[in-house]
Design a protein around this nucleic acid. Structure first.
Lengths: 199, 199
DNA sequence: GATTTAAGGTACATAAAGTACCGTATTGCT
DNA sequence: AGCAATACGGTACTTTATGTACCTTAAATC
């Protein structure tokens, strides 16, 4: 297929133009039918192109799926309530909502589809709605400044413990959503004791 | 196929007999070729039966794979060195070895293949070489008895934090093996401070 | 001995990924 | 302007497994 230019003749998309069209089509397929619905044929058709042009840009379906997913997962500002407990609880609830949403289902399918390839996982980990560590360091940093927390907690491994535990519920237990009291438990039994502990 | 009985006539396996033969064949395929090599046709052929008899017992390849895997993953006694740090480090190193071994590769593939089905994940979680929580509670229980650790730590969520973090490295980063100093970091920066923290 | 149950043996429908070609529009170089 | 190189369009095809469908036949059960 090709788009029509003003004169009614056909113009053939190339390079970045076509790339965006493919990604857009892939993202739309993800939105409508999830990762299982993301077949190369359908994306090609929807983008008005063919599989060749897709495989010229992405080596396989999973790689395409990840880039399309990144188009859908947008960034959010971390909370700043002035209280660490509130901030963390809010971050956990956001993560919980995300992972239990349609987008979260896509994320889980992608996680399964990449088969542990580090580069692809890295692209997926840059998802701002999920880990990123940055959000956690921000929130913890403010708490350190307020004197709520020991400064040694400002370490990615420590800072992200809570989200790792939440993700674990999804990945290892397959729960559709984490009950809120589990979030609270993670917060009060694990995270806060940890970041407040004497070094 | 059928086995030959002493008289040279053929005998047809049924029920538990056949079931064990199938599982044995599946486990052997896993050992030889990993989960990707576990195809229903090959298992059927190797077990000397046909796909029908397999699908009569397991609904799909992943379910068969999990049961076959459970045949391969055997239990181990938790360490008891008299020192919590040593015990935990040993448990983490065992988990690290397991996940980075051929069996660990199978485990990861299975995790991806089950697609978040809670029942299948539950079967997989009973893997004694991995989580189980029981080992962790045992080791922590002894530490509590020795007065090394606050009793409130004797909670599955708290007790298993370390292994969850290790698993996270494999699942979310795709590392082939976790460096030993990361294990130590998890131990000293997270786990010990947590279980020793004032409630 | 008759009936029911489950195995054996095949063949097949389905489905999607990835590859191979080849003609043709576009770009850009001379 | 003309020409070569590049990359898109269109399509067909190979491959590989899963999961089903049938039908025949052995073994257990009554």
């Amino acid at each position: 297929m090709a788009t029509e230019d003003p004169a009614g003749t056909r113009t053939r998309r190339r390079g970045p133009d076509l790339e965006h069209a493919i990604l857009r089509a892939a993202a739309d397929e993800l939105t409508e039918s999830g990762y299982p619905g993301l077949t190369m044929d359908r994306v090609a058709q929807r983008a008005g192109t063919n599989k060749n042009s897709i495989y010229r840009r992405w080596p396989n379906r999973a790689a395409l799926g990840i880039e399309a997913y990144r188009l859908l997962a947008t960034s959010v500002e971390p909370p700043d309530t002035g209280d660490l407990r509130e901030d963390v609880l809010e971050l956990l609830r956001r993560a919980n909502r995300h992972w239990s949403s349609p987008l979260g289902a896509i994320l889980r399918d992608l996680l399964a589809a990449v088969g542990g390839a580090p580069e692809l996982l890295a692209r997926l980990r840059e998802d701002p709605r999920d880990d990123g560590a940055a959000q956690w360091l921000t929130v913890l940093g403010r708490a350190v400044a307020r004197g709520e927390v020991r400064p040694e907690s400002l370490h990615p491994r420590v800072a992200t413990v809570a989200i790792v535990l939440v993700r674990n519920e999804f990945v290892m237990r397959g729960v559709p959503v984490v009950p809120d009291d589990v979030l609270v438990e993670i917060l009060d039994q694990v995270y806060l004791p940890l970041v407040r502990a004497r070094g």
